[in-house]
Design a protein around this nucleic acid. Structure first.
Lengths: 233, 233, 233, 233
DNA sequence: GATGAATGAGGCTTCATTCAT
DNA sequence: GATGAATGAAGCCTCATTCAT
């Protein structure tokens, strides 16, 4: 289930530990630069300088520039795959789990906003084989969401919609925050955007039973927060 | 209201008719090439050859390569601004108008699927000033959708949601078809995608009153189609 | 004596009057542009625009861009050949004539300072055949000065120096004003520069007899000016 | 006092030794080509080929083609600044020193005749900032000459002329040899040109006292040469 | 393993010149 | 005769990639 990221990117260096360390260095620099200036406007020399290594070094850990892009995008996508399970960990209620998953997705997108945009923009710059890897990773992430939906449907909380299609509506919520940030931030802050967005979309999803459940959860949450804020005083 | 596309892209040629014609030639070629191979992998020579003109000629109609990209993206965005009003023309019922608008949006995105992706990918490749133009155009298009939402809210058919935020959910429906086509096409065809997608999202939007209205429209449509198909026999 | 400027620059247009008029138009624009931006940074389109004609038109009056440069430089050099004889016209005393010639030379160089620099800079940009014409023109101009020197030597006013070499010292006076203007103007104004410069160089030239004569001329001139200024009151 | 030549031309390469070596390589090739074919007719590829390096390499040592020109011109001007002090080294007599300086100037101009012309022609092709550097270098060189003049004036050998203006007359002697070589070489060889030219101009400069001194030096020199030539037999 | 200087192919852009109108 | 749109050759410069140290 856990994807070995970039399992096919070859390296001339054999020491696995070193490969991991160097690549992390390179990718951190690359993601930052690619995200902010774009893939084509970023040179390998830029990446090398930012990573604090020589240009030649990079070619001991990747085959070519496209490999750097592939690793960069995979790095971003992997963070999704890490955050979502971590967020649902311990939760059992399907609606709870679903909400936690979506919120987690939105949160990680927000934290790596530019990088998320990078992933969108740059996939087409990759060769078909490499693009496969990206798509596979996205499918995996979507499967995490879709599973939550299936669980909710099974539990009778969600309508019997196509879980894969519905996934895209919620994924779109997270991605839009990054893609349309220039505009949306003028309308709402992150918190309100996610809350209203999730509330909006979940309306489309809930059965009557689910609806009751949702209102109960809302009330509980409101209760907790009231307590918290009264304690805070 | 009507945006003069690319109103600021200068040309050395003075004959307005010719400028229009040549630019159309150039942009048609550019959109196609940019959409399929990407902006950076497409050379001006490629565009010239495909447009059937010399490379030098292009520089009599645009300042630089980025201008070609700007005009290309604006061309795509303009088609949205054309199709949506055309689709709602003559319709008076708010729900009808809204549905027509969204369907029209989805349709034009489907027709220019690669070009839509181009618009997404390439905006960041533009200089800030040029990006402004793109953003302005997107805001205009969104305003068309948002207006439909406002009308529906006023008519009591839609819940009192933030129309600008809600617009993004529906815009996302159209865009996702292009952006995630590689995956969604495996799940559903265009017709089903739009129908189910719209039906899903509209659930989140409708009031009880709106809900009655929606079901009536569905029934009417079903009736018409039954008739049509019986005639077709 | 009078050089037909550019006697070999061909034109497609047959009407001699028109050729003269058009060329004057073109050359005036060209000299200005070449002098200020340099030959290579000036495009034929620039010249055409400044001359108020189309780019194509120019090619009916010259063979190529180099022809425009040739005509431009010859135009400048011709003005020397016009001014010097005009200035000595009517004067009979050799020293008077010589001084008038040098002053006239300096004056025309000052009036067309940038153009003079152009002549210096651009001769090497011309093909050898065209350069010949420039050189021939310069030799003609120098001959005017040299003749004055010969007359002065014959009259026993000037030492028996090589008139052609001495010519270059005085020509250098005029040219330096243009070539080193950026620096000399910080040291002296045009009037003082020419007066001190001529006075300096003429010291090197005069015989004892010439020296007496020179002082007499100075005194006369001073006298006239005193009168003039007293009248002016 | 000692100018760091081209102190502001940046290089991507850090090894100072290498920068010096490579630049010398590049500039040597560039001066030669620029001097003979002109700046604009010389391509970077030409320079690279002549320097025995790749075109890309050049851009690791200069920012653009204009930088190559700047370095080339500075290289020429620096040779003046080297030769003049070297020639006066050890000499104490002001007239001796002055003569040595002018002769040295003429000699280096003769040795780098085409390059001297390049410096004249091309300064205007440089951006204003770069032109400043050229001018500063010229002023420094002129100051060396002017100092000799001042010393001679102080010693009562030279008339009390403006040393900066007088400098230009002597500088003109050297430069004219390069600029008007096509013509002057028909009149006189280098030796005679310099001797007669200096003799001519120095006439304009000497006081009576200086004049006595000058004649004495001439006699001494003639004596030495007689001896030398008798020895040579 | 790491460096960074060197390479050279290739793209954008300019502009002299032509030619159909 | 005049126009100005069109051409296309050519140059500057960048940058991914290599390789000697």
């Amino acid at each position: 289930m856990l994807a070995k990221p970039a399992f096919e990117v070859q390296s001339l260096v054999t020491d696995a530990e070193l490969v991991k360390k160097r690549r992390a260095q390179i990718i951190a620099a690359a993601v930052d630069l690619f995200a902010h200036q774009g893939y084509y406007k970023t040179t390998i020399q830029d990446v090398a300088k930012k990573a604090g290594v020589s240009a030649g070094l990079i070619y001991q850990y990747v085959r070519d520039k496209e490999d750097v892009l592939l690793l960069s995008v995979l790095d971003v996508l992997d963070s999704y795959k890490q955050e979502i399970p971590a967020a649902t960990q311990g939760l059992t209620d399907p609606l709870d789990r679903f909400k936690a998953a979506i919120y987690a997705y939105c949160r990680v997108v927000d934290q790596r906003r530019e990088a998320t945009v990078l992933a969108y923009r740059s996939t087409k710059s990759l060769s078909p084989e490499r693009r496969q890897l990206i798509m596979a990773s996205e499918i995996e992430t979507n499967a995490l969401i879709a599973q939550c939906l299936k669980d909710g449907i099974k539990a009778g909380l969600f309508r019997d919609v196509d879980p894969d299609l519905a996934t895209y509506h919620f994924v779109g919520l997270a991605h839009s925050w990054a893609l349309k940030h220039w505009r949306i931030k003028q309308i709402a802050g992150f918190e309100r955007y996610v809350e209203e967005g999730f509330d909006f979309l979940v309306h489309a999803l809930l059965t009557d039973k689910g609806w009751q459940h949702y209102k109960k959860l809302q009330a509980e949450k409101a209760g907790k927060e009231r307590k918290k804020s009264s304690k805070a005083r």
